Simulated assay, not measured.
Amino acid sequence: MDRTFPFFRVRARRRLLLLAAALVFFATGCTQQQGRDIAKQFTNGKPDEFFQTSVDRMATLGMRDNLQSLYVLMSKLYLRNPSQWRQSGYPDAASAEREIRQAIEQRRPLPALGERRDLVALSYSLSPEFQGDRVGAFIYAIGSMLVTAHGGRTEFYMTDSINPQFVSNAARNIEKATWLLSKRQDANGVLLLFSNEISEEGSNLSFAVEFGKIVARLDLLTQMLDERYRRIGLNYAQSLLLMNFLPVQ
């Protein structure tokens, strides 16, 4: 097999991107500097981005940022609840965090949760019956729910579809999970996990802020998806009103 094929394929894609940039330049009458800027953006982008709409790109970046926010929350929860990562069987919090990230992104089950994922895992992780690393289980459950709500993917292209209702539902579920995190207690009246804190010594609402960022990104994506599908319907209705034939290629 010719091992140089992937190399030439990448070069072919780059030539295609450069050609697209040149066409944009001549079609819009850009200045020379603007043309160079557009060409630079094309060459600096990943070849796969050529197969993404603006909404696809937004969904991909939103998923990346939401998972990153989730990992920040995991680190903060381990700091406030150090006893949890010790129950995970890993030598330190960093090792536990790495395992959770890989399980979410590779769609692997978490041993402490058995085959539970998504909402079932989320309910179980915040129940008094759960025994084990509750931080890891809680973060994994939310992460798996986010991926499921986006159709089981973390990157999106023209051929993919995302159900805006599922994305909106995920946002509402995170709001509920945030509230439960601050309220659920064990039989002795002690919080299952320490997160936000408001006391005479000071306040720490950083957990609520980070969760709020995730919810805001999900709600924005929901609106973008709704608008895209609404425009598809409007364009179809306009074509009927104006008696225009619809393109077939």
Rank of each mutant, 00 (worst) to 15 (best):
R11I: 05
A12Q: 00
A12I: 00
A21P: 06
V24E: 11
F26Y: 04
Q33S: 06
Q33R: 05
A39D: 03
T43A: 06
R57Q: 10
T60I: 12
G62N: 07
G62V: 04
R64C: 05
Y71C: 02
M74H: 04
M74Y: 00
L77E: 03
S88M: 10
G89N: 13
P91K: 03
A93K: 07
E97M: 13
Q106P: 01
L113Y: 11
R117S: 08
R117W: 13
S125G: 12
S125D: 13
F130R: 02
Q131Y: 04
Q131D: 10
G132E: 12
G132N: 12
V135F: 00
G136A: 12
G136M: 10
G136T: 14
G136E: 10
A141C: 10
G151L: 07
G152I: 00
T154K: 03
E155V: 02
M158Q: 00
D160K: 01
S161Q: 02
P164E: 04
N169E: 02
N169C: 02
I174C: 09
D186T: 14
V190A: 06
N196V: 09
I198A: 14
L205P: 10
S206H: 07
A208Y: 00
K213W: 00
V215S: 01
R217C: 02
L225Y: 08
D226K: 14
E227H: 04
E227K: 06
R231P: 08
R231G: 08
I232N: 12
G233P: 09
L234C: 12
L234M: 14
L241K: 15
L242Q: 03
M243I: 14
